[in-house]
């Protein structure tokens, strides 16, 4: 299937790589990494939800608040909630992490 990404229509070549936790991959057709034409972590998350709506249960609770058990890393550095609108550069990597607790 040929997909036209929004960035191509805008004439820029912005692309970031989103890494999906293993636990969520059933909802992403077992894809562990997806390319996104987005500029911020928040936009990437929205785009991810658009592409894989079933992933929503891992991101938001029933009140539509983001789970506290989710963490975000840009290029390996943790970002907190107030940094979700921070612009990213072409080639950056957004890493989603779900907190686990087994022993």
């Amino acid at each position: 299937m040929h997909v036209v990404h929004p960035y191509k229509t805008r004439g820029t070549r912005m692309s970031i790589n989103v890494k999906i936790p293993m636990i969520m991959r059933k909802e992403t057709d077992w894809q562990g990494e997806v390319e996104m034409p987005c500029c911020t972590p928040e936009e990437s998350l929205d785009e991810l939800l658009k592409r894989f709506p079933a992933i929503k249960k891992w991101i938001y609770n029933k009140q539509d608040e983001m789970w506290d058990r989710l963490q975000f890393y840009v290029n390996g550095e943790q970002i907190h909630n107030h940094e979700m609108k921070r612009p990213m550069k072409d080639g950056d990597e957004l890493f989603l992490l779900l907190n686990i607790c087994g022993g």
Binding site: M22, I23, W67, R69, N99, I100, C101
Partner: peptide, 25 residues
């Protein structure tokens, strides 16, 4: 499952468990 995490916490120098985990699965 087949996923694991490790960190070493040094009070005052590193994040603590509460910095790292507000909630878990």
């Amino acid at each position: 499952g087949l996923e694991g995490r490790v960190t070493t916490i040094l009070p005052g120098e590193t994040p603590c468990i509460r910095c790292l985990y507000k909630d878990v699965l």
